[in-house]
Design a protein around this nucleic acid. Structure first.
Length: 258
DNA sequence: ATGGCTGCTTTGAGCAGA
């Protein structure tokens, strides 16, 4: 089973990139973030024509998440139970016929800056997310939590740790929140394997950041213990970031023996 | 040097992203 996560930064603009990428890589399931589309205008026909079922939760302009799957999706649920939030940042679904995998697709708040209300919202959101994932772990031994976490877990995930020290995406409270999620038993699949130095998933559109590889690793595939033992590879696909009018994020793909 | 790109919006200059 091939699982992927990709913040596409507008599904409307990036639909051709997505369809090309699905045809080339044939992933079993893909988690998308920042679709920026209300459910009524989700490009369902185009994606179904590519061979994928869809679960989605969107809004205009901001946020919006979706799970695409070659197999039927079951038990679809949007949002974090008990956490009132108008922002569409979470969707979950179960995929696979017999060997079922529970997939959570998350778009963690950006936080803007560490002294902002948005940062406080980010930390509250992460607390609620963690508590809910603890329950999901009990329900689903095969749990995969994919998405844009907007957190670079360690300095090696940052092109310039000194410049980013204490900044949003790298601050100790955010990293602690990430490690509390990992502490549930969810492993950062990318770090299960030897990886190239300076591996990143996001590069600012400005300053030729991608060409200079000035990036951060903030998109992650976390796996429950049972899935982690079955994970055979995890890699970042840089190719879509090289296209004309790319998303500022690259997809992350994990391969599981499931 | 607080900008730099990009997508979006009651189509405009301003917000948000990271």
């Amino acid at each position: 089973m091939k699982l992927a996560t990709w913040n596409i930064n507008s599904l409307k603009v990036r639909l051709p990139h997505l369809l090309d990428w699905l045809a080339k890589h044939e992933p079993d399931a893909v988690c998308l973030q920042e679709t920026k589309l209300e459910n009524g205008v989700f490009p369902l026909k185009e994606i179904e024509a590519a061979g994928y079922r869809c679960a989605f939760s969107g809004q205009k302009t901001y946020n919006g998440v979706a799970i695409l799957s070659r197999q039927p999706l079951a038990d679809i649920a949007a949002g974090i139970p008990g956490f009132a939030d108008e922002q569409k940042r979470v969707i979950a679904a179960t995929v696979g016929a017999n060997a079922q995998v529970r997939i959570v697709c998350a778009y963690v708040p950006n936080g803007q800056s560490v002294d902002s209300d948005k940062y406080r919202y980010k930390l509250q959101w992460l607390d609620a997310f963690r508590d809910w994932l603890a329950e999901e772990m009990k329900r689903s031994p095969r749990l995969a939590v994919l998405g844009d976490y907007n957190i670079a877990p360690a300095d090696e995930d940052v092109h310039d740790p000194k410049a980013w020290k204490g900044q949003v995406l790298c601050s100790p409270l955010e990293r602690n929140a990430f490690h509390r999620i990992v502490g549930l038993g969810l492993q950062d699949s990318f770090r299960l394997f030897t990886q190239p130095e300076k591996s990143f998933t996001w590069w600012d559109y400005r300053m030729n950041s991608f060409r200079r590889n000035l990036g951060l690793r903030i998109d992650h595939v976390l796996l429950s213990p049972e899935l982690a033992t079955r994970c055979k590879a995890c890699r970042i696909d840089l190719d879509p970031r090289r296209l004309e009018r790319p998303s500022d994020h690259a997809p992350v793909v994990a391969e599981l023996e499931v």
